[in-house]
Nucleic acid binder design. Sequence first.
DNA 1: CCAATGAATTTTGTATACAAAATACGGAAG
DNA 2: CTTCCGTATTTTGTATACAAAATTCATTGG
Lengths: 229, 229
Amino acid sequence: MEHEPIAITRRPLHDDLVERLRDLIVRGTLPPGAKVQEQALCEQFDVSRTPLREALRSLAAEGLVVLTPRRGATIARITRQDLEEAFPILGALEALAGELACANLTDAQIAEARRLQTRLVAQHEKNDLTGYSATNAAIHQLIITAADNPTLSHLLKTFDGRVRRARYMVNISGVRWAAAVAEHVLILEAIEARDGKRLGEILKLHIANKLAALLEQMEEAEALAKEAS
Amino acid sequence: MEHEPIAITRRPLHDDLVERLRDLIVRGTLPPGAKVQEQALCEQFDVSRTPLREALRSLAAEGLVVLTPRRGATIARITRQDLEEAFPILGALEALAGELACANLTDAQIAEARRLQTRLVAQHEKNDLTGYSATNAAIHQLIITAADNPTLSHLLKTFDGRVRRARYMVNISGVRWAAAVAEHVLILEAIEARDGKRLGEILKLHIANKLAALLEQMEEAEALAKEAS
DNA sequence: CCAATGAATTTTGTATACAAAATACGGAAG
DNA sequence: CTTCCGTATTTTGTATACAAAATTCATTGG
């Protein structure tokens, strides 16, 4: 007699589809503004329209896909306005995560944060952007884990997806990268001091700066695109 | 020749279903923990399973419905933990809305806030809970509108639904009601002063107090239920 | 009398079918 | 040549069909 069946259930197709499609969208393989051809995707994934459509509904709820009645699905565009609206929300949520985290942080977690910070600096110096991104994500994940609020964690995960796409569109500038590393020093300090209020403020600022840099990059990219036409 | 077709599109069934089901869930007609019988609902709404299932997926993304593979949908339960996780998020989001709103508030909007506040107090004195709730919602709506951030507005709307159900389960205590009215005085003051930081703080506190009162009420209700059994 | 096993029933996941709407295409009129 | 209109094609929304899994229920053995 078992108490927790641990659900050995095989996942339904639409759940797989959600993940695979999300990946395609976030990475830009399905580019913003693109029309989603149900039939084409059905053939590509070898499924029928029913599970595909259910997956599209989930992604629409996440904001990655826009569903227009009688005229199908498109990949959500990323406009400047979207980013300007989304980043402050992300900032508020991450700030909350930081505040909550400080109330729970264990010594082991703080030690881990120090290790990650050291690695982050080293990767910046070695110009290893891929590794840096991973370490960066790990630090944010550490904070979210320490916050110990699954609802917040889930909300951040889905909400972050909407925004992460933008980073695949432009590459970080050297100036912004250095500034981000500097900000991470402050983040670690606040973590070590378990100063929730301060950590929240820094995270908010960190994200606001990220937005500013991103918008600048996007404008440059747009200007270049215009010139080329 | 028109520039904006204004989309005279008839809404699909699943969109209607989402709204009607959400209403049933939020109002408690479909109670937390209840198993969702697809067939029964299909007959009740006279639709086939396809649009119903799509609607359930949307509601699952909102957190009102829980989908378990191979064993169907249930109405999401509201545990103490859920509320303890959700309210701080709601607080952070409303605080952000307050901050943003203060940057935009017009004199007309401030005047409207004063009118609503007067009405709120009158309705409290007349013990008109229904009217009070509507006015209360209008004040929060005014702030969200002034924040002028559709992404935030949408997020708050769906997220609020998860929590609003709890208020249908217990009725506000006289003590909490009076305290809420007092807090609204401070809210109006911050609005009049266009003090975003302060408005944010008060809203956060307002929501934290709401949570505390709600948890207390729920514990009382649970204790009563236990006694009766 | 209870537990366990297995067949009958229900429910779920997915595929397919079909009607209504939207889009693409092509020819005729200006 | 362009614009308009009507037809053909595609796409969307919904219903239905069917197989696999889960649940129910009765029966049997202990």
